[in-house]
Design a protein around this nucleic acid. Sequence first.
DNA 1: CATCCACAGGAACTTGGGGGCA
DNA 2: TGCCCCCAAGTTCCTGTGGATG
Length: 497
Amino acid sequence: MSDDDTDSTAEPRREDRDFDVDLDEVVLDEGDDEESTGLFDDLLSGEPIFENKEVLRPSYTPHELPHRKEQINKMATILVAALRGETPSNILIYGKTGTGKTASAKFVSQELESTSQRYDVPCEVEYINCEVTDTQYRVLAQLANKFIEENEQYIDGRIEELEALLEDVEEQRPSEVLPETEFDSTDAVEERIAQLEADREEFEEVPMTGWPTDRVYSVFFDAVDYHERVVVIMLDEIDKLVEKSGDDTLYNLSRMNSELQNSRVSIIGISNDLKFTDFLDPRVKSSLGEEEIVFPPYDANQLRDILQHRADVAFKSEALTDDVIPLCAAFAAQEHGDARRALDLLRTAGELAERDQAESVDEAHVRKAQDKIELDRVVEVVRTLPTQSKLVLFAIISLEKNGVHNINTGEVYNIYKRLCEEIDADVLTQRRVTDLISELDMLGIVNAVVVSKGRYGRTKEISLSVPIDETEAVLLSDSRLGDIDDVQPFVQARFDN
DNA sequence: CATCCACAGGAACTTGGGGGCA
DNA sequence: TGCCCCCAAGTTCCTGTGGATG
């Protein structure tokens, strides 16, 4: 469902990053428009490099996950309990971005669900990405709505069965058919159908907001408990949830089992952060961490394997020169063994080669891809920043442009205030601005270190960690910041003081 | 060695906008 | 309509602090 397009285990990456590829492609038609035909012919005639680009996209879930057999088997051994109708232990999965946590977990849960259908054991897996759904209310609401949907399907299924049963009864004698079922008369069957229909009417969709949380919880609880089954709740990026809204959600989920009548709940938590359990209530911690599985980063050799696997499908044969895959693997291995990054790199390199109408992808394309990915990321992050953060960033850039290095909070705040007045924006307090600076730091746009300068106080030393001109251009393209004429006077004023 | 700067950053609170419900 | 809830962003008030300086 909608999960697949939000499955990123990585940093915020709100949209697909292809948006600016289109921009570049538009530029292509400036040069060669002598003929009205030929625009696309040229592009088509070049031997295409890709055979099937889809398998390189982050959203693609492979059928095979090299070098993850051990972890997958461990998950499977824990989860078979569900197929025996028992409650599986809760699982905590650790691993950095791009180590295949989500892919493996999704793979296992797909297998689990399909096996459970074959053996006719009621078992369901629900996936929630806590980076998107990051409050207790939203998690519960989303789960409640999913289970309500499930229940409606379940009821429809039951009603169908029962109606078929009634038909059988009409054809044969009730005494021959009914004894094999739980019913002793056709009336009882009809009653049950009416009951089910009434139940279905009672299900109430949980609204996005408005209800008290405990009401959402009880709707969710009833929905889960409606019929017998084992429910596995998969919480991706669980550390984000704990960070933002505490461990109440996890506490509620983990104590559910003791109150459920018909069903059993088991939780799979997926985390980037090894230490996030430190903030948990000890009870939650012990119940959640019954089983722990660690996904170590891939090393360069493993990455090479993975890339090779996919490249065989993704590219035409001979489309890659020999050093492309090792190089992609090496770059990604430097980024804590991030397979997603490696695949991104390979795909982007291929796209660049395609655009150059090159015969094959070579080392230079990979290096260009490396730069492009980083720049795209920065552009996207900066572009989608809230106005206030943009102003703060702009203040930092202005200082940097005027040769001020090791900028401190006070300086940023002063420039920021002037910028706000200039474009008639609300001026935030310094307290808030320090938070905004910290956020920029976490996004990797600036680098902020707290230093003590003795008598001259304690402050953050801030420096820009992205290309200055490109970033400035992105900021100025914002409709509100576009009005700023020249920053010199502001910064100059600083020196006058 | 104490002092004291210039903030960092935690906690509680407010504001305003999403909504439900009787 | 008035009262309830949830949430993000922001404010107010506050205590804490590393180390050059007097």
